[in-house]
Design a protein around this nucleic acid. Structure first.
Length: 300
DNA sequence: GCCCAGGTGAAGC
DNA sequence: GCTTCACATGGG
């Protein structure tokens, strides 16, 4: 590995993956992951310690990497290329709202991200616009991440900083990355994770509620951020993050002109959206944010 | 200037 | 239990 990393400056290697019904733009731009940059029909980003460039093609995704990987599981797992979207969409409730969301966003996928990066990213997400979350994380990676190998002609880029690294950054230095009041939360949680309390890998094998409780015990992590990590990093489909957009979606689409508490919305979501509720949530989120921005402004 | 952004935690009833 | 508020920062 070290030998490969040191052998910088080679041309990118390309491989095409079959991917039917995969909307790369919607997926990489739907507020799940924050490290992708779009330029001339191409997405550039970092997955773990791998630089990657993704380009949509008919029923496929063309992937460029900086060095030959031993295997491609880090990529196929991240993009969830083995998921049959039809099977997922078929489990959605057959109501007008979900039909509209699917019609508008078909091809939107859930990624499967590395837990620490996902957790830290969403700690930084609170009351921030997606554009600003990207900027904070870019700054954090540039300051405290390890450089990854890139091909000739590509600007240097870093991986996401480890919990151990961020645990040793003082709060004022974190604030220099423009994360504001989130800095002490990120630092305190980084220290907990670096100490293995909890061990993020072991959460994979926990029941949903136990994993959620372990995450919510961390500083700066409440129900919403915990659910984002449960869904985007571990794939728990019972996790249904309710942020301001999803709250508007649920209230307007399912409970118009009624007062309904967040608790009731969670109870509704847990029974109404079926075995792939997490997927349904992402469709509602993206639908509201991208397709119905004018409606989203009405009656919060 | 104003309001809002993929919220959380603490303090008040 | 529920409601209100402070918390940084930047975009529209």
């Amino acid at each position: 590995m070290t030998a490969e990393i040191s052998a910088a400056g080679e041309p990118a290697l390309s491989r095409t993956f079959s991917a039917r019904d995969y909307d790369l733009a919607a997926t990489l731009n739907s507020g799940q992951a924050f490290r992708w940059r779009y330029d001339h029909d191409v997405w550039e980003g970092v997955i773990g310690c791998h630089w990657a460039r993704l380009r949509p093609a008919p029923s496929a995704i063309v992937v460029e990497v900086a060095h030959p990987p031993g295997d491609w599981r880090w990529l196929t797992e991240y993009l969830q290329l083995d998921v049959d979207l039809d099977l997922v969409l078929r489990t959605f409730p057959d109501d007008l709202s979900m039909r509209a969301a699917v019609a508008a966003c078909r091809g939107l996928r859930l990624l499967r991200q590395e837990p620490w990066e996902c957790l830290a990213s969403f700690i930084l997400s609170s009351t921030k616009q997606i554009l600003q979350i990207r900027q904070i994380i870019a700054s954090l990676c540039e300051c405290y991440g390890e450089p990854v190998l890139v091909p000739i002609g590509v600007a240097p880029v870093c991986g996401f900083p480890t919990a151990a690294r961020l645990a040793n950054v003082i709060e004022s230095d974190l604030r220099a990355c423009k994360m504001g009041f989130r800095a002490p939360y990120l630092r305190a949680t980084a220290r907990r994770i670096a100490a293995g309390e909890p061990d993020l890998e072991s959460l994979r094998h926990f029941p949903l509620e136990a994993a959620r409780a372990a995450l919510m015990d961390l500083p700066g992590v409440g129900r919403k951020i915990a659910d984002c990590v449960l869904l985007f990093a571990y794939g728990f489909q019972g996790a249904f993050p309710v942020d301001v957009w999803v709250m508007k979606a649920l209230r307007q689409l399912y409970f118009p002109r009624r007062r309904i508490s967040l608790k009731r919305l969670h109870e509704f979501a847990a029974t109404h959206f079926g075995p792939n509720a997490g997927y349904a949530q992402q469709y509602l989120f993206h639908y509201m944010r991208v397709q119905r921005p004018s409606l989203a402004k009405l009656q919060p």
